[in-house]
Amino acid sequence: MNTSILILSPFLSISGGVSSYVLSLRGFWGINEKYFFRGGHGSNTLAKSYYFAKHFFNFLFKGLLGNPDAPVFINTSLNKNAYSRDLMYIKACRLFKRDFYIFIHGWDTSYFTTIKNHSSSDSFKFAKKIFVLSEDFKNDLVSIGIDEGKIEVEVTVVNSEFIDFFNINKSLFKGDSIKLLYLARLEKDKGIFRLLDAFKILSDNIPNLQLRIAGSGSAETEVTDWISSNSKLDISYIGRIDGTLKYEYFAWADYYVLPTSHGEGLPISVLEAITAGCVVIVPPVGGLKYFFKDQEMGFLLNDLSPSSLANVIIDSLKNVELLNSISNQNFKRGKSLYSPTVVVDRLKKHIYG
């Protein structure tokens, strides 16, 4: 087995699912990990071009030429900015006859439609393996002629500090309140306003109900205005959180709710909520459609209306024994399937056999 791997990634200081994934796996490969970063620099076209060239030639000379035979693990997303940029790195791997593996974290369906009949999509055919986060994404690649045997449906990862923070003794509904957590970007298509409207309905039916909202985004002002206009409800906006504070809010929550209509891959926040022992409520969109097990990880939201979301929570509270079973099974599942060690072991089997 080759003792080195070249890992292409956004800069780890840039927030986002791809950099979080790479950072969570860092140090767990058990071989010499060599990182090459791109993106995130330059405020104008000239500066961006300069930094692109600098990063690309660094990868070319210090990466490919400096590490003969080391495989390349490319972390990208299928959207215009990321894929058009990373296509150059894929072409470099092909030029140097280097084995490369592509992990597609984000998936823009409309962008895929524009490139599926374009020659740029042929580059996928030369990858040794392609990792995606949904069976739908796999089927899309097969539809353009990619060998099905090359495509693996994977999951993202929960970092080791998060996993170590929790223990299996978490019990739901032992206090005098029911606690809901939303932790995601504040965007309309992420479902934040559906949740707020559902919470209003729930508050008329369930005493001592609490909601905490974490994240940032374009709808932040609208969200805070909504909370101010409904000040009698127990809702707090806590902004963007990370580290121990994020762990503490997941530990605090009974339910994690993400009523999104966005074309999700597989949100890390959902894996974190499962690992924390929360009961998760999500719709069957993107990677969640195939990944999420209804009544085992929580509850699927097949109707995105606020009243339907409220009813799912009201009905679930009729069976506290089931809720506690879901919580404990989620914790076990998170530790056994989403830890960095387990994820890296799966990847290495695909890369090294």
Score class of each variant (00 low, 15 high):
Phe37Ala: 09
Val343Leu: 09
Asp122Glu: 11
Tyr237Arg: 08
Ala198Ser: 15
Thr109Glu: 13
Ala70His: 11
Asp254Leu: 11
Lys179Thr: 09
Ala219Cys: 11
Leu301Glu: 05
Val132Cys: 06
Asp242Ala: 12
Leu65Val: 08
Ser236Lys: 15
Ser119Gln: 14
Asn324Asp: 15
Ala310Gln: 01
Ser20Pro: 05
Leu317Cys: 11
Leu209Arg: 00
Asn32His: 07
Leu23Phe: 08
Gly30Arg: 04
Ser305Pro: 01
Leu46Gln: 10
Cys93Trp: 13
Ile168Glu: 15
Asn328Ser: 14
Tyr89Gly: 00
Ala276Ile: 10
Val158Phe: 04
Lys293Gln: 15
Ala47Phe: 10
His41Gln: 11
Lys349Phe: 02
Gly277Gln: 09
Leu209Lys: 09
Leu323Val: 01
Ala92Asp: 07
Pro306Lys: 09
Trp29Gln: 02
Gly239Pro: 10
Val223Lys: 03
Leu347Gly: 00
Tyr35Pro: 04
Glu264Gly: 00
Met1Phe: 11
Tyr111Trp: 11
Arg240Gly: 02
Leu317Ala: 10
Gly243Ser: 10
Pro340Phe: 05
Phe100Lys: 05
Asn75Cys: 07
Ser19Gln: 10
Lys91Gly: 08
Ser216Gly: 12
Ser20Tyr: 06
Leu172Gly: 14
Ile5Val: 15
Asn67Glu: 13
Gly353Val: 00
Asn208Arg: 12
Glu152Gln: 14
Glu135Ala: 04
Leu323Gln: 04
Ile144Thr: 02
Phe331Trp: 06
Leu288His: 06
Gly263Ala: 15
Ile351Thr: 07
Leu25Glu: 05
Leu245Lys: 14
Thr114Ile: 00
Arg346Asn: 15
Leu12Asp: 01
Ala276Thr: 13
Ser305Arg: 13
Glu135Arg: 06
Gly63Ala: 00
Pro283Val: 01
Val312Gly: 04
Leu309Thr: 13
Arg212Trp: 10
Val285Cys: 00
Pro259Trp: 07
Val158Ser: 02
Tyr83Glu: 03
Ser49Tyr: 09
His41Ser: 07
Val312Cys: 05
Phe250Thr: 09
Gly17Ile: 07
Leu347Tyr: 15
Arg98Gln: 06
Ser177Ile: 08
His262Thr: 09
Gln210His: 14
Asn302Pro: 00
Thr114Val: 07
Lys188Glu: 15
Tyr182Glu: 08
Asn79Tyr: 07
Leu133Met: 13
Lys289Ala: 13
Ile238Arg: 10
Glu321Trp: 01
Cys93Thr: 11
Ser43Arg: 12
Leu245Met: 11
Gly145Phe: 09
Lys54Pro: 00
Gly42Phe: 03
Ser121Trp: 00
Asp140Asn: 13
Gly40Thr: 04
Val280Ala: 06
Gly239Ile: 04
Ser339Lys: 02
Leu60Pro: 04
Leu309His: 06
Gly16Phe: 12
Arg98Phe: 02
Ser305Val: 03
Leu181Cys: 03
Thr260Arg: 07
Ser123Val: 10
Ser19Leu: 05
Ile268Trp: 03
Leu317Glu: 11
Ile206Asn: 09
Gln329Asn: 15
Ser236Gln: 15
Glu154Met: 13
Tyr35Glu: 10
Glu272His: 07
Gly30Gln: 05
Asp147Glu: 14
Ile206Arg: 05
Thr244Tyr: 08
Ser160Lys: 15
Asp108Ser: 14
Val157Trp: 06
Thr341Ile: 14
Asp108Phe: 03
Gly175Ile: 10
Gly149Glu: 15
Glu220Trp: 00
Ile168Gln: 10
Gly286Arg: 04
Pro207Glu: 12
Ser218Gln: 13
Gly39Ile: 05
Trp107Gln: 01
Leu95Trp: 14
Val344Ala: 03
